[in-house]
Design a binder for these strands. Sequence first.
RNA 1: GCCCCCGUAGCUCAGGUGGAUAGAGCAGCGGUUUCCUAAACCGUUUGCCGGGUGUUCGAGUCACCCCGGGGGCGCCA
Length: 554
Amino acid sequence: MDVRKVTESLLLSGIKRKLAQWGISREISFSVEIPRQEEHGDYSTNAAMQLARHLGKKAREVAMELVEAIREEDEKGWIASLNVAGPGFINIVLSDHAWREVVATVLRKSERFGSSETGKGTRVLIEFVSANPTGPLHVGHGRGAAVGDALSRLLSFEGYEVATEYYVNDVGNQMDKLGRSLHVRYLQECGIAADLPDDGYRGEYLAALARDFRREEGERYAGVPEEEALPVFRKVACDRILDGIRMDLNDFRVGFHNWFREESLHREGGVSEAIEELEKRDLLYRSEGAVFFKSETHGDEKDRVLVRADGRTTYFAADVAYHRRKYLKGYDRMIDIWGADHHGYAPRMMAAMRGLGEDENRLEILLVQFVTLVRDGKAVQMSTRSGEFTTLREVIDEVGVDAARFFYLLRSFHSHLDFDLTLAKTQSSENPVYYIQYVHARICSIFREAGSRGVFLSDNPHLSSLSLPDEVKLMKKVARFPDVISEGARQREPHRIPFYLLDLSREFHAFYQNHRFLGEAPERTQARLALAKAVKTVVSNGLSLIGVSAPESM
RNA sequence: GCCCCCGUAGCUCAGGUGGAUAGAGCAGCGGUUUCCUAAACCGUUUGCCGGGUGUUCGAGUCACCCCGGGGGCGCCA
């Protein structure tokens, strides 16, 4: 039972009947929304205003007539009052028992409450993080991980068949540089003078990796010529760094169905197939020894190289092949989550997909904006030159996984994020994540206390005593959860969840302050416990969608 | 120069497919505990929604222009 849907269908059937009377066959679009002002009712529709222009009547008159028709549809007394306001809005107030049914629904659906199954039958592939295995994940990757993982959970919850994938760029220039850098570090460990190339990876993590490698393998690679040793160092560096990334993500509660290796794409001929396919469609040409893709004709600002003059393919060529493969796998939707610095890349990818004859609208590229760490009100400086970024690992160690995930999702990913380490670390109510978790812990505590008093919530509690304004307010807040979920999923905006949870938590804490759950008359106690259970369920469901734990005590 | 994101209270940010009198947290000030967890609650101050033009019954929301901040414009990834 979804309050909004029931209300909408009631309005719709009333309006349809009226339209039939007026002999209007065309569809009209109207909105049903929750007004900002409480006095404007629980829901409000602009249907009369939308209709007025077609009828040549005054909106308020149309509204009056619609109200009559809707009243006649409402046989069960779902609606408490309907009235016309302002320029022609129809304001709807639902009766209390409508809200009580929400509580009953939450108890019945439990961990499934909130899902509208809007994604049923849709297969979606979400690719995120996909950081190059040249160093540990930093705070920016953390945001992509938090957003991608939450979106995956959200879409799964909404009934989508979700697969998640991490694309590993384990081929190319940067892998050579990485191998060379590790080799130099290794030689240094062996006491042999060697200098990192100017464009080498300078991070401490590689020196540490070299130490490990020397401990395990001794100095048997010290005398091997560089070109011979390189493949070994390249592989060791890549594999170990990737293991580290996997562990970081695992500890961050982020897992992938598939780790897709770029290398496999080359090995299995995917890259040359993609190039041939474009060739067949006459979308390639040669210039100065290189092979160009005519992306400009497909909306890109200029043509792009697929094969360099020296015969090696570009990263772009592999990425085209990779995305072509996604289409071949038959996903209905493909979502890429990229850092904002890659935005210029989106048009050429779209161009390539269109060039291959695919529907580029099935590919969505979400650009996640940058993260600035803030400590004690000041930005934490990060040095690109030394290769020393603040890592995701450091952030997790400092503030914990729950706070880290929560803070990453506390902003729309379209916006730049100031990540306040000081606040995230604070173990008090000032910290929004604990504020929400405390609701869960508090309710668990109520049930523990109830149990010790021999009071238990019955399977089918009477809810009719839930009628105080504060009770109704809380029920209304609970009722919004399915809306937040379906809109969040539709718009790909997981940040709506933490915002909603904060809202619900405020409502609950205020209620807790002013009312008691235990020690009331038996029927009232049962009803209050049912309400508490409903809030607990929604908090728990919401937190699980963003990968944050719901503690039983704090 | 071109492209993407952002510009809303002192600070950090929310503001469903355009709706009626624009919100929260933090910061500031002042209160609340014989109680199911005070990791809580209540009160109080705050706005040219960057600026302009347009679209319309109605614009923080849509279109265009300008200003400001961040990012991107490689045969790097």
